[in-house]
């Protein structure tokens, strides 16, 4: 069986397309590369959707936290505290069992006990909280002069926020937000190791990597393959976010542009 056959059989295995049974013995390098790569589809799915949706909620929460009215500020602070103060691992477990007990009463929640929706919801709220804290910090350091200049031009309310405050906030937050994006992708590996089950062995990259490590009792092949994929993903994220960073900074003289620097790892 050539490597192309293996790719044809297993490239979409994580989505339930292709060969039904996972390989059981005589594992080839090709099988490991293909299956772990197939699992990456889930990591990218969770990461991209949580990031995009979390970005919007995070902007809202950050603005709410900076608001002077208590009834807006307090919920935002609590939201951030709860999701940043507890481990993501426990959040996954809690959410899974919560949806399970809700399912008994309301069948509507049935879909949430599956990883594709339930875990996505947790990741969405989690990244929203972490990003909101970053955005809040950036919002607090928007230069006073920029806002005063907007006032002088007669801008206020929504136009001032959309055209002056928000772009500046994003520009200031972007390097930190890039790191958040990277570690969100890393956090997606937790999904199938918490409460959420992988139905019919459709798992993410780490799920397959640990499958191989368990079967072969040799961690030195699958985990480096996983590391290879994730380094590739990290570089892609840095590249894409770097483009956005360039766009956000393009009005500034060169030496004042903020560089993206990879910061120390964060487990949630």
């Amino acid at each position: 069986m050539s490597c192309w056959d293996t790719i044809a059989d297993y490239a979409l295995r994580s989505q339930g397309i292709g060969e039904r049974l996972l390989p059981r013995s005589d594992f080839t390098l090709c099988q490991q590369f293909t299956l772990i790569g197939s699992g990456m589809i889930w990591n990218i799915y969770f990461g991209v959707l949580a990031l995009v949706s979390g970005f919007m909620l995070a902007t809202g929460v950050a603005v709410a936290k900076a608001h002077h009215q208590l009834w807006l500020r307090k919920p935002a602070e609590w939201f951030i505290f709860v999701f940043r103060g507890s481990p993501l691992f426990i959040q996954f477990f809690f959410a899974y069992f919560l949806f399970q007990s809700l399912k008994a009463g309301y069948p509507f929640f049935g879909a949430f006990t599956a990883a594709w929706l339930g875990a996505l919801l947790v990741l969405f709220l989690n990244t929203a909280a972490y990003s909101a804290e970053i955005f809040y910090g950036a919002l607090m350091s928007v230069p006073k002069g920029d806002v005063e200049a907007a006032d002088a031009y007669g801008m206020s309310g929504w136009p001032r926020f959309r055209r002056v405050i928000w772009p500046t906030m994003l520009r200031l937050a972007w390097p930190a937000y890039t790191n958040e994006a990277i570690f969100l992708f890393h956090a997606t590996t937790l999904v199938f190791f918490s409460g959420f089950p992988a139905s019919q062995q459709r798992g993410d990259a780490l799920y397959y990597a640990s499958y191989f490590a368990d079967k072969t009792f040799n961690p030195f092949i699958p985990y480096p393959i996983l590391a290879f994929y994730f380094i590739l993903l990290t570089l892609t994220v840095i590249g894409l976010f770097g483009l956005v960073n360039k766009r956000l900074n393009h009005h500034l003289p060169k030496e004042r542009r903020a560089k993206i620097r990879l910061r120390v790892n964060l487990i949630r």
Binding site: A213, L226, A227
Partner: peptide, 20 residues
């Protein structure tokens, strides 16, 4: 080496690797 790779992968890797 710990940047760029999910930390949980390290946990799963090191436990077996150290044992072996």
């Amino acid at each position: 080496i710990v940047r760029g790779v999910p930390d949980i992968a390290f946990f799963l890797f090191f436990v077996i690797a150290l044992d072996q």
